[in-house]
Simulated assay, not measured.
Amino acid sequence: MPPGEKFEMASIGRVITSQEMRGTGLGKELIQLALETIEQRWPGSEVFIQAQEYLKNFYGSFGFQQVSEPYIYDSLPHLDMLYQAKK
């Protein structure tokens, strides 16, 4: 989502991978493509996500940092994470 659409900064919504495709690297490719697309369309934009808590390290591997305490969303523990664009 573009900056200002849902949040102040650009954001990535729900990322869903089918059970059969988990562990294939497809999720990593998808997040990398999303970050590259955001950088192309809105250079320098921060990126906000509401991540399931158990995926903190996955998103952290892309440079996302936790910016909230865990909270319940859709009956699952989530946390807010922010990616600082490379300058």
Rank of each mutant, 00 (worst) to 15 (best):
L55E: 06
R22V: 12
P2K: 13
Q40R: 06
T17H: 10
T17L: 13
I38Q: 03
D74V: 11
A10V: 10
F58V: 05
Q66I: 08
G13H: 07
I12V: 05
G4S: 10
A34Y: 03
E39W: 07
A85E: 02
E8V: 08
S11W: 00
F62E: 04
F7A: 10
T24C: 07
M21Y: 15
M9D: 08
N57T: 13
V47F: 02
K56P: 12
E36Q: 14
Q32T: 09
I49W: 01
Q66D: 02
A51I: 08
T37F: 10
F7D: 03
R22C: 11
A10W: 03
Y83K: 03
L79G: 03
R41H: 10
L55D: 05
Y71G: 06
S61V: 07
A51S: 14
I12G: 02
A34Q: 06
T17V: 15
S18W: 13
L26G: 10
G60Q: 01
Y71F: 14
A85S: 11
Q40M: 12
M81D: 01
P77E: 04
S11I: 07
M21V: 05
R14F: 12
L26S: 11
S11E: 11
I16F: 15
L76P: 00
E29P: 03
M1A: 15
G13K: 10
A85V: 01
E29V: 06
I31L: 09
E53H: 07
I31K: 05
P70H: 08
G63A: 04
F62M: 05
Y54H: 13
I72H: 07
R14Y: 07
Q52C: 04
T24A: 10
G4A: 12
L26I: 15
Y73D: 15
I31T: 06
S11G: 13
E46M: 11
F64Q: 00
Q84Y: 13
G23T: 12
L33Y: 14
G44L: 08
M81T: 00
I72A: 10
G60K: 01
Y71I: 11
K6D: 11
K86S: 09
E39G: 05
E39D: 14
M81Q: 03
E46A: 12
I31S: 03
Q50F: 00
M21L: 13
L26K: 07
F62R: 02
P43L: 01
Y73V: 08
M1D: 11
E69T: 09
Q50G: 05
D74H: 13
D80N: 12
E20I: 13
A34P: 05
P2W: 06
G44M: 07
S45Y: 00
E5K: 10
L33H: 13
L55N: 03
Q66T: 11
I12Y: 01
L79V: 15
I49E: 04
A34M: 07
K87L: 09
M81K: 02
N57V: 08
P3E: 00
F58E: 02
Q65F: 06
I49D: 02
Q32I: 00
Q19M: 09
G63T: 04
S11D: 08
Y83P: 04
